[in-house]
Design a protein around this nucleic acid. Structure first.
Length: 591
RNA sequence: GGAGCUGUAGCUCAGUUUGGUUAGAGCGUCUGCCUGUCACGCAGAAGGCCGCGAGUUCGAGUCUCGUCAGCUCCGCCA
């Protein structure tokens, strides 16, 4: 007999089960040996159940139980009975299982860290032993949420007549956008597949094929640097619909979020979700994904400072830049050192400096007060609605830079003031709409598609395409929750002529277009329906649902910041013979 | 590509400012005792390439340079 199979799990026994004969399988979470009595907490995915070995009842068994150590895999047969000292902390705390027989199915080495919630072990150790980290209830809870999300997403789109279709993982490398992961072809030496950054083109082609409503929960790959909310492979809920406009995508997507929040968190989210133009988001929050859980909006000051004597402001006004500020309520108590730190923080975003005004006990103190007239100072204070005890932080720069700096400062100040901690159970959704079609890259000296090159311009801005491409707005939209971009999409170009014009604006040559996207252009000529869609960042949604700020917590086997998988040791070198088969020759970097 | 923080016992960390006997603590582990624990308790013990490599010095955990790794951020991420 290798082991007796369980007929009950470690989380389900209650006082109503008293005197049942049961068999448990699981891991020994903790062992408390009192000399005679031995208590073993058995753990599985469902919970923890206390098992007791009594020498009075079964001396040989109790003797054998002394061998049990942490994380041994056990089967235990016994009878359920009420505890004389109940434990109110766990759901099974009213009962215990009196062992009548048991076996060690497998021994375990001493784990490098305790398998329990709230541990402070370093990331490196935890990732190396990911299988042990994943044994912790805290982490399992997140994957249970993730699984619920999969089920709701599939059910929801199925109920709404969407078809799930799988798209290739080996596809053609395309320019624009993120760096591709490349896969060499053995059969076609010197040629490469790319892993999809998203199934964008395939889902559009599925629309041309008449699939009408497509969805897929799909892995995407981008060879870019990692962040706490970015992994090189991640999961999207990919959606595309035909014969629709922007509001159709928005309402279908909102329906999903309403259902998800209701079924997973038991919360009713406000629908319709608020909408804000990209222009307003940037102007008031300095971000295209504003966190609306708190205020601290950006106040624009240029208009009242046109005639300033202050050289720094003068130059900005003359260069058509922007002077703007945020108010830090009760910020006057912040020390010079803290303000210096905030200045350093602002410099990461390209700020040259940071001006500030403190109002404290009726006194105004500011390094720039000597450059401002009383009226100007009054104007700044009034514009910020600042009261005694407040601090005003002022940025003056090129318009977009000044806004970005203040947007970043707004979040940093909120973090330092403990505002995020206060609002951590709030959920503020937002649609950001009317994105620019293009953004200009100074370095490359040309326009790039802000969303992607298949995004449709708004009809009313068509006339600007040739004269002022930077002003053209796109039929693109992002969905934001608590300052995180959790999805984005657009209405696509279904007209081949406009698509050609778009490529033309992006500075792609005829031959380049033909080589990279020829198949899409061709497909668009065969009767493309109007279509559009959205891609939702599933990992980020799970992050928000499970209350974590790190994407590693919601991906079973994540990579480190430098893209390594510490458990399996990838990426790794390969055999020379493998490279030879692929026709690949490596060269070493020489200095 | 760049910046910051971190690396000392299985784990979490002190010690580095000002170089100097045998590198400490808590938790965990092991051994013994212990019949109602659930952070069990009590007594004892074991456990260290101070990330790695150079250098300075009579002497380096401590200073210098390099390097590797983890985390966070900027760039990057249509």
């Amino acid at each position: 007999m290798s082991f007796l199979k369980r007929n009950i799990n470690c989380g389900e026994l209650r006082d109503t089960d008293v005197s049942r004969k049961v068999v448990l399988n699981g891991w020994a979470a903790t062992v408390r040996n009192l000399g005679g009595l031995i208590f073993v907490d058995m753990r599985d995915r469902y919970g923890i159940t206390q098992v007791i070995f009594e020498p009075e009842f079964n001396p040989e068994l109790a003797e054998k139980a002394k061998e049990i150590r942490s994380e041994f895999v056990l089967w235990v047969e016994g009878e359920v009975r009420l505890r004389s000292n109940p434990n109110q902390v766990i759901p099974t705390g009213l009962i215990e299982v009196v062992a009548s027989n048991f076996g060690i199915i497998n021994k375990a080495e001493l784990p490098p860290f305790p398998i329990e919630d709230g541990i402070e072990t370093g990331e490196e150790t935890k990732l190396k032993y990911r299988y042990l980290d994943l044994r912790r209830p805290e982490l399992q809870r997140k994957f249970i949420i993730r699984n619920k999300l999969y089920q709701i997403v599939h059910q929801y789109y199925h109920d709404n007549n969407f078809l799930e279709v799988e798209t290739p993982v080996l596809m053609k490398s395309t320019p624009e956008g993120a760096r591709d992961f490349l896969v060499p072809s053995r059969i076609n030496k010197g040629k490469f597949y790319a892993l999809p950054q998203s199934p964008q083109i395939f889902k559009q082609i599925l629309m041309i094929s008449g699939f009408d409503r497509y969805m897929q929960i799909v892995k995407c790959f981008r060879d870019e640097d990692l962040r706490s909310d970015r992994q090189p492979e991640f999961t999207q809920v990919d959606v595309e619909m035909s014969f629709i406009d922007r509001d159709d995508i928005i309402s279908v997507t909102e329906g999903l979020f309403v259902k998800v929040w209701k079924e997973i968190l038991g919360l009713d989210i406000q629908s319709p979700i608020r909408r804000m133009s990209y222009a307003e988001a940037m102007s008031s929050y300095g971000s295209d994904k504003p966190d609306l859980r708190f205020g601290m909006e950006i106040n624009h000051l240029s208009s009242g400072l046109m005639s300033t004597e202050f050289k720094v402001f003068q130059d900005i006004v003359a260069a058509n830049g922007l002077i703007a500020s945020i108010k830090v309520t009760n910020g006057a108590s912040l020390s010079r050192k803290i303000i210096d730190e905030l200045t350093e923080f602002a410099k990461k975003y390209g700020a040259k400096g940071l001006a500030w005004i403190k109002i404290s006990n009726g006194e105004i103190s500011s390094p720039i007060s000597k450059f401002l007239t009383e009226e100007q100072m009054e104007f700044i204070i009034r514009s910020n609605d600042a009261k005694d005890g407040d601090l005003i932080l002022i940025s003056s720069d090129k318009r977009n830079r000044a806004l970005t700096i203040l947007g970043a400062l707004r979040l940093e100040v909120a973090r330092r003031q403990g505002i995020f901690e206060k609002v951590k159970n709030n959920f503020e959704f937002l649609w950001v709409v009317d994105f620019p079609l293009f953004e200009y890259d100074e370095e490359a000296g040309r326009y790039f598609a802000m969303h992607h090159p298949f995004t449709s311009p708004m009809e009313e801005d068509f006339h600007l395409l040739d004269t002022n491409p930077g002003e053209v707005r796109a039929k693109a939209y992002d969905i934001v929750c608590n300052g995180a971009e959790i999805g984005g999409g657009s209405i696509r170009i279904h007209d081949n002529v406009i698509q050609q014009k778009m490529f033309d604006k992006l500075g792609l040559s005829e031959s380049e277009i033909d080589e990279k996207f020829g198949f899409l252009i061709k497909a668009l000529k065969y009767g493309a329906p109007p279509h559009g869609g959205i891609a939702l960042g599933l990992d980020r949604i799970v992050m928000i649902l499970s209350g974590t700020d790190n994407i590693r917590d919601v991906i079973a086997f994540p990579k480190t910041t430098s893209g390594l998988s510490l458990m399996d040791g990838s990426p790794s070198e390969v055999e020379l013979s493998q490279l030879n088969e692929l026709g690949i020759d490596l060269f070493r970097k020489t200095e």
